[in-house]
Amino acid sequence: MIKVAIAGARGKMGIEAVHTVMKRQGMELVAALDYKQVGTTLADLEIFPVNYNVPIFTDFSELVKYTAPDVLIDLTSPHAVYEHTKQAILHNIRPVIGTTGFSDEQLEELKQLAEEKKVGCIIAPNFAIGAILMMKFAREAAKYLPDVEIIEMHHDNKLDAPSGTGVKTAQMIAEVRTEKKQGHPTEKETMPGARGSDFEGMRIHSVRLPGLVAHQQVLFGGEGQLLTIRHDSLNRQSFMSGVVFSIETVVGIEKLVYGLENII
């Protein structure tokens, strides 16, 4: 039985994760981490059934002391996720992270810490299996069509831009693509930001609108042709198969993995 704790259980992704773990054979939800005093158990919240008697902790050390989880799922916010991940590894708890916003320096530090402690850690910019395939296909296409732009579209409450998926896609493409400046050599933005962010000459555009969940298209241009690779998450249930896969996988590894494409 894998004992699981969830940070961010009241969020839209967190609610789905709570239901998924509660119903999954071989897993037990033992705790929730929430820095607001919202109740004693998840059953105290109107968003969960009355039989969800999972304790809520406002202090991570107390959570570890009283419930000793094997895995911490973090679905919180960029400003909290780094510290949660670091503390989990230090306590020999395996983090499964669905929050983006890590700096390169933070990722390197966490990677070294996980290897030193021999504690598995999975950081997934996107849990949707289709999105992972989209990134893999985009990397393959970039070998032959190196002129590429990424358009990622998310709900208007998302805190970071570009999205972790957009950045991860660009990083994967950059592994097989020689850095190059796209567009006219002397092009000029008449409004700052019109061309999006620049990643090794690739452009990443972020759209934030109500009604969206998580969507991305990668456009490849060539002489007389356009290739578009697109993925759409229509609801948050689309991420849960990846969450389950990550929980089951992280207990068997002893290092940090950034991106599910490395283990799928």
Rank of each mutant, 00 (worst) to 15 (best):
Y258I: 06
Y258C: 04
I263D: 00
K168E: 11
D232W: 06
A161N: 08
N126P: 01
L159E: 15
S238C: 14
N126I: 10
A214L: 08
A170D: 04
A124P: 08
S206I: 01
Q237D: 15
L159A: 13
T190V: 15
L234C: 12
N126T: 10
A138C: 15
E223F: 08
N235Y: 03
F137D: 06
R236V: 02
A170V: 07
L234G: 12
G221D: 00
A142E: 03
A161M: 08
V243E: 03
S197L: 03
M153D: 01
A214S: 15
R236D: 02
S241Q: 11
I122N: 02
I129Y: 00
E152L: 03
K136T: 11
M172N: 09
G211W: 02
K158C: 07
V250Q: 06
G193L: 12
F199R: 02
C121V: 13
T190M: 14
I123E: 00
G211A: 04
D232P: 03
A142M: 01
L260R: 03
M153E: 08
Q217M: 14
L256N: 05
P210T: 07
E179H: 13
Q225T: 13
E149W: 05
K180G: 09
T165F: 01
E200L: 11
G166K: 03
F220T: 00
K143C: 10
Y144M: 11
F220R: 06
G164S: 11
P185R: 10
I247V: 13
I247C: 14
S233F: 00
G222E: 08
M240V: 10
A214R: 01
L256G: 01
T169N: 05
V213A: 06
K180N: 14
S197F: 05
V243P: 02
H215P: 02
L212F: 11
G221T: 01
N235G: 07
N235Q: 07
T178C: 05
N157K: 13
T228S: 15
I204D: 02
T186V: 11
L226T: 08
F137E: 10
L212I: 07
V244L: 14
N126S: 13
A214D: 03
H231R: 00
